[in-house]
Design a protein around this nucleic acid. Sequence first.
DNA 1: AATTATTTGAAACGATTGTTTCAATATATA
DNA 2: TATATATTGAAACAATCGTTTCAAATAATT
Lengths: 193, 193
Amino acid sequence: MPRIEEFDRETVLLKAMNVFWDKGYNGTSMQDLAEVTGLNRSSIYNSFGSKLELYQETLKHYQKNGNARFQKALVRAENPLHAIRLIFESFLPEIIGDDRGKGCFSMNCKAEMGNQNQDLKKWLLDTQENTLDVFQDLIADGQEQGTINKKQDSKTYAYYIFNAFQGFRMTGILIKDKKILQQIINNSIQVIT
Amino acid sequence: MPRIEEFDRETVLLKAMNVFWDKGYNGTSMQDLAEVTGLNRSSIYNSFGSKLELYQETLKHYQKNGNARFQKALVRAENPLHAIRLIFESFLPEIIGDDRGKGCFSMNCKAEMGNQNQDLKKWLLDTQENTLDVFQDLIADGQEQGTINKKQDSKTYAYYIFNAFQGFRMTGILIKDKKILQQIINNSIQVIT
DNA sequence: AATTATTTGAAACGATTGTTTCAATATATA
DNA sequence: TATATATTGAAACAATCGTTTCAAATAATT
């Protein structure tokens, strides 16, 4: 009975994400979103609820993409240590190709909205925990397998790698030199080998 | 002949900084600024030019404070390696005491405005260069003096430390556990010893 | 005490903010 | 084909945005 949505939700979400990513949450207006998606304001509200809900959905979309990149690295890696390296390197194309200097969407959210909205803060904490777990599991495996040293426990190393990873996303905003970025990765991983 | 400004510029700047720091540039309204500073809108415009100019001035104020912290660490340090450690540790009180989760003002600016305003981008690049130089000089000194290894050149290590430092500021937004943060510092410095 | 240069307060500016309303449109089912 | 259900477009909502205006207030100088 119902009339069906005319637009492709995935496409709209992607376009909306790019605006939020570029301009930030507060820097993006519903006007911007309507223009870039081609949807009428009312259609956006009807389909996504509100500006904040749309923002949250684009964040999840972004993170899903990031998780996929993590998974790809896990599959391709020869061992856990190599997997960590591949995870870092898998973001090199995004960083170097990011000519607008948008950086990391998730990191931008953390800086702009992490202390302004409890729902977003909770989401950030959850994804942080998730990333930490991935790193910790990899490190624990690597320690058993022998490619990662046992000088410190996997959790401690996970925090260290997580820290380096976040720095990597921030550094990549203004530094696009692949050689420099690659050396940062090498040195960051050095500690756990 | 002229009537003198009634307010203390330094105090106003500090109050304005805290709002920008907390809410971001786009999240802060002139209303907010007038309320928190106690100044009338016209007085703000008369004394600081515009919202953007006031924002830039608060950023410089923040950075001046950060530089002072760097200098303090340099003076107190026993050697260049120790200086780098002290620089990281000098931000621990700010991180742990930051109960509102504001993070690093400069990092927030980078994430929110680095790609939106050319003047701000230029300022961010300048301060980045400055920080990198400080680290490189320290590392070069440490390498001559013997507390820092010579496996890689000072510039490469400077980028690595810079990366870890930026991660540190981001990690500190959601992680306030001093022991964890201290371990991140230890591991980050490990590479260059 | 008169003059002059500046700041201050209140009000208003047009533009834009996020959101809502509702009639017109469209389509899958009966 | 008629009906029911949903989406769409345009307009309008009150509120707030950053900024400007200008007369009143103020204080250092003459």
